[in-house]
């Protein structure tokens, strides 16, 4: 996957580039707004990673003009601002996800993987399948190897998100944002509590665990 990174801070750019290269991505770096806009217009990329504060042209305006030109490449905003409205503003201007600096590399990698996947998801199916798991999104049923698993609504939402991202790491922050729609980090670890309940229901009595913990990053639902 070719990724265009528009970021004026040299150190961050290096950090991001190395981190994504390790995952097998090709990263092109543009250090200014106008440079970034030029590259984004003249080549097609799988993903744009855009800093909000850029010399020449700020990230929001850059993405806004790309969207006006019908460019639908997914965009991940990076920012040092952690304003309570920044996230909303970023998503409103056409960004697909938002990450506040400083961030852990694992967080960035997980979000990039999720965004790349999002583009290939054309429409929302009524059924989701990952290995032995089957989710009926209409009836809100879950079965593992054909056997019914009873889940609470919150647990179902959590599993749905994991299945949508099966085979990829999802971080705590991604779960808070996407499953519970919380745009802040609560003090106690609510993710763990919910996850342990879901695991108990999904994996109890089976020899293989479907939900795995990735140390220092988050969780992964095995796709096979």
């Amino acid at each position: 996957m070719e990724i265009l990174l528009i970021e004026d801070d040299h150190e961050t750019a290096l950090y991001v580039t190395e981190g994504l290269q390790k995952q097998g991505h090709v990263v092109h770096w543009a250090p200014t707004g106008p440079d970034g806009l030029h590259h984004a217009r003249h080549r097609s990329f799988g993903l744009l990673i855009v800093d909000r504060m850029l010399p020449g042209l700020d990230g929001l305006s850059l993405v806004r003009s790309l969207r006006e030109e019908n460019c639908d490449t997914p965009v991940l905003f990076l920012t040092t601002m952690s304003g309570i409205d920044d996230r909303v503003e970023g998503l409103r201007s056409g960004g697909d996800d938002y990450l506040t600096k400083p961030f852990a590399l694992a967080e960035l990698q997980a979000r990039v993987a999720a965004l790349v996947r999002r583009t290939s998801l054309v429409s929302t199916p009524t059924q989701l399948r990952a290995g032995p798991l089957e989710l009926d999104l209409i009836a809100r049923h879950v079965t593992r190897e054909g056997k019914r698993v009873d889940l609470q609504p919150q647990e179902f939402k959590l599993l749905e998100y994991l299945v949508q991202n099966a085979g990829r790491v999802v971080t705590r922050a991604m779960l808070l944002e996407n499953v519970w729609k919380l745009e802040f980090d609560p003090g106690t670890n609510i993710v763990e509590s919910h996850m342990s309940r879901l695991r108990a229901k999904i994996d109890r009595g089976y020899s293989t665990e479907l939900i795995l913990t990735v140390r220092g990053s988050g969780y992964i639902l095995s796709a096979h």
């Binding site: 609560p186 609510i190 919910h194």
Partner: peptide, 13 residues
């Protein structure tokens, strides 16, 4: 909503 989110946490604690 907050109650639903926190119920498992309370139980765990």
């Amino acid at each position: 909503k907050a109650g639903e989110i926190y119920a498992p946490v309370m139980e765990d604690m």
